[in-house]
Amino acid sequence: MLIYAFRDARGVWYGDPDAAIHGLRPRRGVLTLPPTAPGQDQGPFDGQQVEVLYAACDAEASQTSYQLDDGHSIVATCHVHELLSPAYQRVLTAPAAARNAATVRLEVSDSDRRYSLHADRLADGRVEITVVACTPDGVIRGELTGELDTADLAEVGRLIASVPTASATKAAPPVTARAPAKATRHGQRWTPETIAYLKEHHRAGKSPAQLAEELGRSEKSIRWKLHALKLAPYPSDLVPEPRTPAEPEVPKAYSVESKRQLHPNAYKPWDPEDEHRLAERCAQGASLSELSQEFGRNEGAIASRLLKIQAEGPAADDAWDYGG
């Protein structure tokens, strides 16, 4: 039994709340963390009371156990222990003048790296961030992009700062999963009636394959929907697994300029009008390849945006193959 996730007083989950567990339901408990000891730096959750989830799972176990308020002592996963440990508390912050701006652009560099950050404030207190690491001559070595609630920036900064540094290794290419047979309603929007039918007949014992045939959808779509409804575990077997290449290959260098020769809008922020048009084209049945050419972005960027805006259509279903 391992503590694999916990929730703070604001209702925010940490750790791995979607981890695959052995059993029907995880167990819940309450953990009151001690306050910061005199002379020590304050940890992010010191003195707080959190709700924990624990179960038998395959996550890596730490060597530290936590005593719950009911007296049970449960070992935490390495991920959870890193979050609860007072040693992980560094926060990444921007200068004070930049924090009040609608758009923030920051850049730092050293002898062999240049790092740039572009952040745009969005509606409802959210911010879209793009970070690019490249060599002094513009060859990209890494990139990170996404959208967050501004209230979560400090916690995400702590998580990033807690990642141990290691020697760089080449990422293995993903295994391309064989595409399932197209369903007669592939990409069609879920209605309240179809969701009710899915819940009722899943609880009656019908398999995803049977439900896929009855609802005219792919089995993959059924399994993802059951997971979204919290009726089935995370379908990790549908996400392509990495594989080790037979022979080491030299990483290919690329730059922002070279990527924009293929995809003119690479690394550019999405406009609300573009997102609206993307959702419309997806609903009309356009494929990922067609959307990539139309919007001037690579298929991975298109897939990420389709999942973010919860688009409906064949391309949105195929977007899960990119690790969604």
Rank of each mutant, 00 (worst) to 15 (best):
I3L: 09
I3D: 01
Y4R: 08
W13M: 00
W13C: 08
Y14A: 12
G15C: 09
D16P: 07
I21P: 02
G23R: 01
G23C: 02
P26H: 01
R27N: 02
R27C: 03
G29Y: 08
T32D: 11
L33R: 12
P34D: 07
T36F: 03
Q40F: 04
D41W: 12
G43H: 05
D46R: 07
D46Y: 00
L53P: 08
A55E: 02
A56N: 08
A56M: 01
E60K: 14
A61R: 08
S62I: 11
D69C: 09
G71C: 05
H72L: 14
H72T: 11
S73E: 05
S73G: 00
T77L: 08
V80L: 14
L84I: 07
P86F: 00
Y88T: 13
Q89E: 01
R90D: 02
R90I: 06
L92T: 12
L92Y: 15
L92R: 14
P95R: 13
N100Q: 14
A102E: 11
R113H: 07
S116G: 15
A119Q: 13
R121A: 09
D124E: 13
R126N: 03
V127M: 15
I129L: 14
T130F: 15
V131Y: 14
A133V: 14
P136V: 06
P136Q: 06
D137E: 12
G138H: 03
V139I: 05
R141E: 14
G146A: 14
V156E: 14
G157K: 13
L159Y: 13
A161K: 15
T165A: 04
A166I: 08
A168K: 03
A172W: 02
P173E: 01
V175H: 04
V175S: 02
A177C: 03
R185D: 00
H186A: 02
G187I: 02
W190S: 03
T191S: 05
A196N: 04
Y197Q: 06
Y197D: 07
H201L: 11
R203V: 07
S207E: 11
A212W: 01
E213D: 00
E214Y: 04
E214L: 11
G216F: 00
S218D: 08
S218P: 05
S221F: 03
A228R: 04
L229M: 01
Y234V: 09
P235D: 08
S236C: 04
D237W: 05
L238E: 01
V239S: 02
E241P: 00
R243W: 09
T244P: 03
T244V: 04
T244M: 01
P245L: 04
E249P: 10
E249G: 15
Y254H: 13
S255G: 10
S258V: 13
R260N: 07
H263F: 13
A266I: 11
A266C: 12
P269I: 07
E273A: 14
R281E: 00
C282Q: 03
S287H: 10
S289H: 03
E290M: 05
L291V: 00
Q293C: 08
E294P: 02
E294W: 04
F295D: 07
A301E: 12
A301H: 10
R305Y: 07
I309A: 09
I309G: 10
Q310Y: 10
A315H: 00
D317N: 06
D321E: 13
